[in-house]
Write a protein that binds this DNA or RNA. Structure first.
Ligand SMILES: [Zn+2]
Ligand SMILES: [Zn+2]
Ligand SMILES: [Zn+2]
Ligand SMILES: [Zn+2]
Lengths: 152, 152
DNA sequence: AGTCTAGTGATACCCTGTGTCAAATACAAG
DNA sequence: CTTGTATTTGACACAGGGTATCACTAGACT
């Protein structure tokens, strides 16, 4: 546990300290800008982009430089703590959550539901056989209208 | 059939005239820049981006302005004659082909195989039931190594 | 506390893509 | 074939998202 984190963790949401601990575990320092981005990310309701993170941080008083926000988002993606979400148009949104994950996105309001079991294994096997590829990863995103937007 | 196209079709590959006819059918004019982009696109081996189209056209002597290339690519996408390909990093590549389609991409050499039957219907039904969303479209892309890159 | 190294921030820059608008031109009508 | 007109083009300015640079800051460890 880093000294910096220990000094601040009592005033932080558990989700944030959890993520911070994973940074430490991966050998990265826990700094004020990184904690700020983690706070902003956990405060978002669904998927978010870098601009929204910065807006939130500016509104809450102390935003790091935009470069550090980009760097932190990239770092979290590399550590697999943040998943990139591909939309129909905007491909640079992110959602918190570790590991393999996919999303159902509302094309009207942006609400997002994450799911893990995408069931493409049979498809992967079929295509490995027919194409000769060795398939190692995949992207599955679904688009539609959420219940609330369906009603309207 | 447009007059412009009729005057040039004998010197064009059939794939290009086919696409041009679909432009006409959709009410768009057949112009030199559009034909050039169609030629360049059919000449690419796999997926391509706008820069590669322009490079090809410059090499072959007469490239339209970059703005017209972007416009034509966008038009072809809107007409569903061109599919956008989402890669792990580069999300702005395109592959010729009409209708619903997905891709298997080699992460090393970029080779691409298209497939149509993605078999996500069960997944869609399951998620519609569990989330309440009405799902209307989806994105499925697979990544791995092609046979040639596997050997190396 | 002091050293060392990772991280930051300001800014300049790059890349992809779009808005503007005068000039060009495909197409249809005569 | 000529003419009219609405579409399309191209040059360029601009915007948005993201990266490179580099002097400076500040965690982490002793
Ligand atoms: Zn994408
Ligand atoms: Zn919605
Ligand atoms: Zn390959
Ligand atoms: Zn499909």
């Amino acid at each position: 546990m880093s000294r910096y984190l220990k000094a601040r963790q009592d005033s932080l949401p558990p989700a944030v300290t959890n993520l911070a601990k994973q940074l430490v575990a991966a050998g990265y320092k826990v700094t004020a800008p990184r904690l700020a981005v983690l706070q902003a990310a956990t405060a978002q309701t669904g998927a978010f982009n870098v601009q929204e993170i910065e807006d939130w941080l500016v509104q809450h008083g102390d935003s790091p430089g935009i470069a550090s926000i980009f760097r932190t988002v990239k770092l979290l993606c590399d550590l697999n703590l943040l998943q990139r979400v591909h939309g129909l148009d905007d491909c640079h949104r992110y959602s918190l959550g570790a590991g393999h994950g996919h999303h159902v996105l509302c094309t009207r309001c942006g609400v997002l539901v994450r799911f893990d079991n995408c069931g493409v294994q049979e498809l992967v096997q079929r295509l490995e056989q027919s194409t000769g590829f060795r398939i190692s990863s995949h992207l599955v995103e679904l688009f539609g209208l959420c219940p609330r937007c369906l009603a309207a």
